[in-house]
Computed example of a mutant assay.
Amino acid sequence: MVRVAVFASGNGGNFESLVRTSREWDNPPCRIELLIVDKKNAFAIKRAENLGIPCYVVSLKECADKKEYEEKIIKILEDNNIELVALAGYMKIISEVLLNAYRNKIINIHPAYLPNFPGKDGIGDAFRAGASETGVTIHYVDEGVDSGEIIYQEKLIIDKSWDIEKLEEEIHKIEHRIYPMVLKQLCEKIEEERN
């Protein structure tokens, strides 16, 4: 069973979707062991409490620098034997400290069809650009911003009548469906390679 940690900064909708969906699988290949958040007021913390998932708040402001911050995170991951990290609305750029410890073991979900609209507001950027389509991308995390190897993508045609709230809602529907599916496939692959 692959031990997974989820990182979030805000609402935690994708985190909850991953936990709830993974609990419904027959013979689950992984288990979400913990949540790490970087903001003390993140709603994701409440979701973790409701789901009975241990939650760690690690604040960059309380660390000397990014290196110390990520070393604290690595310690939590190692203490819990975490093998795979799933970013779910985690708004920090991951530096080489954490990347080197978990190379090709950190995945991210991005609310746009990469390489279009990378960065922190993929939905808003697509909406403001008047794009006719966007989508959702799940990719490995590397040194760049939303530039890692793509694992899975799904397109969404944008209806001209949609406001930004409707576009967000449609993107979240796709995210909540595909992120658990891709996580399951990745963990099954890790399990196979182990055996």
Rank of each mutant, 00 (worst) to 15 (best):
G135E: 09
E83I: 00
T134H: 01
A64Y: 04
A86T: 01
E149Y: 08
F117G: 12
N14C: 14
K39Y: 04
F127W: 02
F43I: 10
D125F: 00
G12Q: 11
E175V: 05
I107F: 11
E16F: 01
D159G: 10
N100T: 12
K66L: 04
M91S: 04
A112E: 12
N108Q: 06
T137G: 10
E71C: 01
I138E: 11
K40V: 12
A131G: 02
N104I: 00
I157A: 14
E170N: 10
G12W: 11
I151S: 06
I109R: 03
R194W: 06
K173W: 01
G119D: 05
A42M: 04
E78K: 12
L18R: 01
V57Y: 05
G119V: 12
G135C: 07
N100I: 14
K184P: 07
I76M: 07
L18S: 02
S161W: 01
L87T: 06
Y56Q: 02
N27K: 09
I158P: 10
N27V: 00
K166E: 15
L35E: 03
K61V: 13
S59A: 11
L167R: 03
P29D: 03
N11P: 04
E168Q: 13
I36D: 09
I190K: 13
V57P: 06
L167C: 07
G13N: 15
L60S: 08
N11M: 09
V145A: 11
N11W: 00
E49D: 14
E192F: 11
K39R: 15
R103D: 14
I109K: 04
K173R: 15
I82P: 13
I138K: 06
V37R: 05
L99A: 02
K72L: 05
E168M: 13
K72Y: 00
N100D: 15
I158W: 09
E133V: 00
